[in-house]
């Protein structure tokens, strides 16, 4: 068991345990904070998989952007005086049976499939990703920038107070 195995075990367990807490915690604010550890764990797994640029992007976008948005959403959609923002669940045991069987099936499928092995060398990826984005995937790249602008404008439009519409 070398250092890489210990790192994979540690970050895999961190990811899974914090994701379990996200799903089952009775307080929604705790599960939002637990999502932080899931995102960091996935970023560390990206690093182990030699995806350095992607790990940095994961930390910047998920932890710096999406998580802050989610925590703002939790705090803005609850009554501030109500400190215990409780969460209700429904039909937990009915859902557990089919989902658990699907998960068991997927894990058995993963274990008994003969996957092709074609290793990627451990080297910096940023330059190659940049070249591929500009050359091979340029249409997807441009379309995604249009999508981001549209989502931004839509979010601002949806999030505005309602009586602003009459002012114009």
């Amino acid at each position: 068991m070398n250092f890489q195995d210990i790192a994979i075990l540690f970050f895999g367990l961190l990811t899974i345990l914090s994701a379990t807490f996200v799903t089952f915690s009775p307080k929604i604010l705790y599960s939002a904070f637990s999502l932080l550890f899931t995102f960091f764990g996935v970023a560390a797994l990206y690093l182990i998989l030699s995806a350095d640029f992607l790990a940095a992007t994961q930390v910047i976008v998920y932890v710096g952007g999406i998580l802050i948005l989610i925590i703002f959403g939790v705090l803005l959609t609850a009554r501030i005086t109500n400190l215990e923002i409780l969460e209700q669940t429904q039909q937990r045991f009915i859902a557990l049976l089919p989902i658990g069987s699907i998960g068991l099936g997927l894990i058995l499928l993963i274990l008994f499939t003969n996957w092709p092995i074609n290793l990627l060398p451990n080297e910096p990826t940023t330059a190659t990703i940049g070249k591929k984005l500009i050359l091979t995937y340029v249409i997807a790249f441009e379309a995604s920038s249009v999508l981001l602008i549209a989502a931004l404008i839509g979010a601002v439009r949806l999030g505005r107070e309602r009586n602003d519409e009459n002012v114009q």
Partner: peptide, 8 residues
């Protein structure tokens, strides 16, 4: 993009 629109 999805998180921004969904939270709005």
């Amino acid at each position: 993009a999805e998180a921004a629109v969904a939270l709005a």
